[in-house]
């Protein structure tokens, strides 16, 4: 199934949950409403003709000017088609609905995005820091991140 068909399919069912679609990019993507991620993703996973059973990757991106995004790369092992989903939020209100209950693999990816970019995934079962120490402050992959002088009394910049 091509990206256009997937887009049409979703548009017909969810309407304004699909905020935007960019179908002419090398890898076409759909922008979703960050508050309605789960229902769309459940549909993407379970619908017979779509069957996006494999969540390859969830990446957080800081787009500067207070805009954060989570990018989901989905693939179907059955139909061998791929789609990219995006959900945007702001630094002031960094909330996106979690899809960890849809794809178990998204669990750790979302934790990583939370850890490094501070995107809060609502309804995530276990949203803790994953790569950094639990008491680390700040989100290093944000573009305006400043390395702290000290961490637990240890000098950080070497």
């Amino acid at each position: 199934m091509t990206a256009e068909e997937i887009h049409k399919n979703l548009q017909a069912r969810f309407g304004d949950a699909i905020v935007e679609a960019k179908l002419d990019a090398p890898q076409s993507f759909l922008v979703l409403d960050p508050k309605r991620m789960k229902e769309v993703c459940l549909f993407l996973r379970d619908e017979e003709s779509l069957q996006f059973d494999f969540c390859s990757c969830v990446s957080g991106v800081d787009y500067k000017e207070g805009k954060l995004g989570a990018i989901y790369h989905l693939a179907s092992m059955v139909h061998k088609h791929k789609i990219v989903l995006k959900a945007f939020c702001t630094v002031e209100n960094p909330h996106i609905q979690s899809v960890a209950s849809v794809w178990g693999g998204a669990d750790w990816h979302e934790r990583e995005a939370y850890d490094l970019l501070g995107i809060i995934f609502d309804e995530h079962p276990d949203l803790r820091r994953i790569l950094l120490p639990y008491d680390w402050e700040g989100y290093p992959l944000r573009k305006d991140y400043k390395v702290p002088e000290f961490y637990n009394g240890m000098k950080v910049p070497y």
Partner: peptide, 8 residues
Amino acid sequence: DVAINYGV
């Protein structure tokens, strides 16, 4: 099914 769901 678990393997696929977890992205293994």
